Amino acid sequence: MLVISKKGPGDVKASDFNKNGAVEIINPEAHIATLDKGAQFEMEVTVEKDRGFRSTEMVTDKGKEIGRIDIDAAFSPISRVKIDIENTRVGQMTNFDKLLLEVESDGSILPYDALIAASNILIDHYKAFAFNEETPNELTQMPEKEVPMMDEEVADEVLEGDEEIDPKTKIEDAKFSPRTTNALTNVGVKTVAGLKRLSDLKLSEIKGLGQKGIDEIKERLG
């Protein structure tokens, strides 16, 4: 809260506000009013910190105090920004653009510092998209899908797969994956009995089977 109490005649300026360590008067010569002889001027000003612009329509407690006058508030220290783009030449290339920025402030911050601060704010906003596997972001999380119920026929096949396989069963009927089935039949393995006689070393030598296929065989045969 800043307070002015002054008698005329004379001008009322921003420098007439009472001293307040939390508020700095940027322009002490700012003219507020002109007083005639014998006039008494008193004013209390509420100073707030915010961003952007706030109109009187946005004030929620308007009219609660007698004599209170709400005014539009501009919190940004930047009063004007002009942007221009010109053609420029770099070496032999003439199709480049040059960006020209003209920034004016109210004196509370240098235009260059304001540009740096605005750039950092923009960078911080874009950091929300600059994530990786080590720092997962909620944007990468896919919605959970509902797992469909398994019908009875498929369930029966799964249960049958958990039962012990008859050694006489042909490899084609042993319900291995197509890759594993092809790898075994290509080397002449015809039945589950013949497959069981193969050692881990022999299995590892079968082309196209791989460790994944070996693990599948062990899991299937128990």
Rank of each mutant, 00 (worst) to 15 (best):
S79Q: 14
A33K: 09
L201Q: 14
L201E: 15
L195Y: 02
L100T: 13
G67A: 06
E104W: 14
A33W: 04
R51K: 12
R68A: 13
G38P: 02
M1H: 15
E144K: 14
V3C: 02
K82W: 08
T140S: 12
G8T: 05
K190S: 10
P136E: 13
I85T: 15
E48T: 15
V154R: 14
F131N: 07
D215E: 14
A174V: 00
T56G: 00
D84V: 06
R54C: 08
R220F: 01
S108G: 15
H125L: 09
H31V: 04
T94V: 11
P143S: 09
L139T: 06
I171D: 03
K190H: 05
P167L: 02
T34K: 14
I66Y: 07
E146R: 12
T180P: 07
L203N: 05
P28C: 05
R80I: 01
G208M: 05
I32V: 09
L209D: 02
A30Y: 13
G38H: 07
V3S: 10
E48Q: 13
E57C: 03
E138T: 13
R68C: 06
I165N: 00
D106G: 13
K82A: 12
L221T: 06
I71W: 02
D166Y: 05
E172V: 08
F176K: 10
A33E: 07
K37C: 00
R68H: 08
I66V: 14
A22H: 09
V147F: 08
G210S: 09
F176G: 08
F17C: 06
S15K: 15
G107W: 08
D50I: 01
G107Q: 07
K19P: 04
L101D: 01
G213A: 07
E57W: 06
S108E: 08
L99D: 01
A174P: 01
A14Y: 11
G194E: 15
I217S: 09
K98H: 10
D11M: 06
G210V: 08
F131W: 06
E160S: 04
H31L: 11
E205V: 03
M1L: 11
A14N: 10
G38F: 03
Y126I: 11
F129G: 00
E153F: 08
F41S: 04
I83K: 06
K202I: 02
V187K: 12
V147C: 01
L100K: 14
P77F: 09
D36A: 12
D61S: 08
K82Y: 12
L184N: 01
A73H: 04
E24Q: 09
V47D: 03
L139F: 08
